[in-house]
Design a protein around this nucleic acid. Structure first.
Lengths: 357, 357
DNA sequence: GTGAAAGCGCTAACAT
DNA sequence: ATGTTAGCGCTTTCAC
């Protein structure tokens, strides 16, 4: 056994010498071994200097850190993760493209992850069905966990993650029954929609309508439910209902149908801002309605566009930063302790502007 | 030496047995060894099945692939990268937060990278100075290359990348002299701004003004230069100039100053849409100007907001997808062949809408 | 075409 | 507190 080690290290030394002689093709990196040599310590000592809780004398630590600095050494995170079984990578999967809300969410999540010393691997699903493949892909990159925003996941892939003991946190979408995920965090859509209902009711609206986003998405369903419940509390009922697929064009079509009715609504709550802006445009230019005089409109998300002077749309602000923070915290928690599944609702803020009374 | 090997493999076998007996703490993964056993081949054979250009018999390949499928095996990308010296990770660093253009750019880059089988690691710099630290961080994650959008890099960090032989591609910002980067791709800002100038000139504008973004950013400088050159070609000169820091508030202040002058401009070209929208708002509500009758306004970026009916802003579209595609292609090219630095300008499209004649 | 053996750069259990 | 040693899961010469 001893001979073995000697032979091995001899072989190793020879290889190193060769490497240093010829200008190698492979990318050259400063390794912990080189730092160790310069500092006159072992590789373990170097390793310990870069491992938070490791026991190392202050004196040697300084010596090693100096050497490392001098050589421009940084530990190779890939090599490290091979035996710690933790890559430091966190997957972020977002399905809904083109929606400004999700663009902001990506940014917020990325910031939150990187601030905790991890690296966000961001995958964007172009079609709804693509999520599964992306999640598999992420798994092979050994992500420590994933944050999935507003996407459909198959049972198969959740099982895959379960057996890999890799947590999945859902964002802006609750876990459906039977779906085994580590947790979910989303806006309190029900309460927020109820605030809109209350605003409509207390400012004299009598025929409120709702424009849904995508049918069967939890966000749209919750906003609908909260709106109806809120109206009910004020003795009102939904006068009309349509669907706009969360897009401007969809919202435009829905608004046309809604406003073209004999008993047209006098207030429209759209499940997001894009559709609400479309409703405002249709109401003004195609029906010549004064807003908020003849029609109140409210949206959801508080996008940049909604704040513009020409619209000044009443809407709901989701506190994306908070949501991102909580989601990443939940992920971290599930990484360390054994962690019971949790669901978090983040309260929203009503942004009352000029499209309501 | 032989004894050694035997001892080692014996030890290994024992360890495996132990692992299988006790429910291990570490995350369990299907390894190539398990697939190899099931398929009755060696680990090398399994490896070759997942390595594109490897020589392997079709018959064994099928057998291995079957076994892999049965066990749900996926090669561990981390382990692979340890000896291929390629992680498959591509860094994306974006400095400008809150700017809708960069949000779209992140998405486009992420899509482009993931479609080529790599994984985008997205870092967002909150402050301008943070870029350096993020780039260092990325390097320790062994990224194969980085795409940097609109950020300042220190010389030190570019040297670091150079010695690590990791390519840096700049996006939407040219490399300044002395800066050693692998390449850059950005919009043809000069030509685009000249198109706006021509539009103004040929529709009877006589006193054109320019609102810069951030001073000293190449995008703003190029747009200014192209605009002035374009005007010059039509015998016009810049009537006024201001700065708006690429933000709505900045654009608002600039517009107020510009329109408050005795000889107010009759056309304003803003270096981005946010400032242009602010200019439209100020012109309409604070100065009661008719657009485009009394004032023409043009922006840059073709953001979602610019297309809204209430603004219908004339602007320039940057073809973000194309830029992202070219940038990633350039990165791939520099990864394979020895590659000479390159700079690419992507042509823009004029989007003529209702804020110009 | 296939297997054996030697690492990629690092960490961690163990011994000192 | 530090060094020695044995891998993490994979790829890759090198024999056969």
């Amino acid at each position: 056994m001893h001979t073995c080690a000697t032979l091995a290290s001899l072989h190793y030394a020879v290889k190193l010498a060769i490497d240093e002689m010829m200008d190698e093709e492979r990318r050259r990196w400063i390794t912990s071994l080189e730092v160790a040599r310069l500092a006159g310590v072992s590789r373990s000592a170097v390793s310990r200097c870069f491992t938070p809780g490791a026991s190392i004398a202050e004196r040697t630590k300084q010596r090693v850190l100096n050497a490392a600095d001098q050589l421009g050494y940084r530990p190779n995170a890939i090599a490290r993760s091979l035996n710690t079984q933790r890559s430091g990578l966190v997957g972020v999967v977002v399905a809904d493209v083109g929606n400004p809300f999700y663009a902001r969410l990506i940014e917020a999540l990325a910031i939150e992850i990187q601030e905790r010393g991890r690296a966000p691997v961001v995958f964007v699903a172009k079609e709804a069905g693509a999520t599964d493949a992306l999640l598999r892909e992420l798994l092979s990159f050994q992500v420590d966990g994933v944050l999935v925003a507003s996407a459909t996941l198959s049972l198969r892939v959740t099982q895959l993650y379960r057996s890999a003991e890799t947590p999945i946190i859902l964002l802006d979408r609750m876990a459906s029954d039977g779906e085994v995920v580590t947790g979910d965090v989303s806006a309190d859509n029900v309460a927020a929609a109820a605030m809109i209902a209350e605003l409509f009711a207390t400012t004299g609206c009598l025929r409120p309508a709702f424009v849904a986003g995508l049918e069967n998405t939890s966000t749209s369903l919750e906003r609908a439910a909260g709106f109806v419940a809120g109206l009910d509390r004020h003795g009102l009922k939904l006068a009309a209902r349509d669907v706009g697929a969360y897009t401007y064009l969809g919202g435009q079509a829905a608004a046309r149908r809604l406003l073209g009715k004999r008993d047209r609504p006098d207030a429209i709550f759209c499940a997001n801002d894009e559709m609400a802006l479309a409703a405002v445009d249709v109401a003004r230019s195609e029906f010549g309605l004064r807003i908020p005089g003849e029609l109140c409109v409210a949206g959801f998300d508080n996008t940049v566009s909604s704040a513009l002077a020409a619209y000044s749309l009443t809407t709901v602000d989701q506190d994306i930063e908070r949501m991102a923070g909580e989601a990443v915290s939940m992920l971290e928690a599930s990484l360390s302790t054994s962690f019971a599944a949790e669901r978090l609702r983040i309260p929203c803020r009503l942004i009352r502007r000029a499209t309501t009374r």
